[in-house]
């Protein structure tokens, strides 16, 4: 008889080392391989129980894939696995320089409509956000590679900043779609 052991982590499920830096191609190919085995379409003629179980497995595979391919969610998940409770949705940073920069970018975003070429101005802001996000992801790479308590603490701070940039990016993208629709 087999013992029911605890369910594998997303990293284990995808056969990846538990680290912030991941092999994206391996993640993608592993995702396809797992879905080929467990997707409900593979059980279209099976009994109710097998269909239900396959839907559960496929949901888990999808969830794991979404978490691992997104640096923000992957970072949060790693902190969670390290036992660090990290509520970045409700905490705020004390890095005043960062907060100032955020405020400036928000003001700039709010003023975009008034610019001569609103789409070009917005494109500039979006490029800057992308660069800032890339820098934070690189920083997280180093911090998680160190892995000591102080580095993980700093990773929590960086994830919080990443979350700020993501929200800003979402708003900017939303505005871009709206502007393009209006201009069309």
């Amino acid at each position: 008889m087999m013992a029911e052991d605890s369910s594998p982590t997303h990293f284990e499920l995808f056969g990846l080392p538990q680290a912030f830096s991941i092999d994206r191609r391996q993640l993608d190919s592993r995702f396809r391989e797992l879905q080929r085995k467990f997707h409900p379409d593979r059980y279209a003629n099976a009994g109710d129980i097998e269909r239900r179980l396959s839907a559960q497995q496929a949901s888990r595979i999808n969830e794991g894939y979404q978490i691992l391919k997104d640096p923000l969610r992957r970072g949060r998940y790693l902190l969670e696995l390290a036992g660090i409770v990290h509520d970045d949705e409700h905490r705020t940073t004390r890095d005043t320089g960062f907060l100032m920069e955020q405020m400036e970018m928000r003001e700039e975003l709010a003023g975009v409509r008034a610019a001569d070429n609103a789409l070009a101005a917005l494109g500039g802001i979006l490029d800057r956000i992308s660069r800032d996000i890339d820098a934070l992801v690189a920083e997280l790479d180093g911090l998680f590679a160190n892995g000591d308590a102080a580095s993980l603490q700093a990773a929590g701070e960086a994830i919080m900043k990443l979350q700020f940039f993501r929200r800003l990016q979402d708003e900017a993208v939303e505005l871009e779609v709206t502007l393009e629709d209006e201009l069309a």
């Binding site: 087999m2 029911e4 594998p8 499920l13 056969g15 467990f38 129980i49 097998e50």
Partner: peptide, 19 residues
């Protein structure tokens, strides 16, 4: 039903181990 569930879990483990 319990048997089917065990097979499914086994299959997941096998997929991971194979990898």
């Amino acid at each position: 039903s319990a048997y089917v569930e065990r097979r499914m879990n086994n299959s997941i483990r096998a997929a991971m181990a194979g990898h």
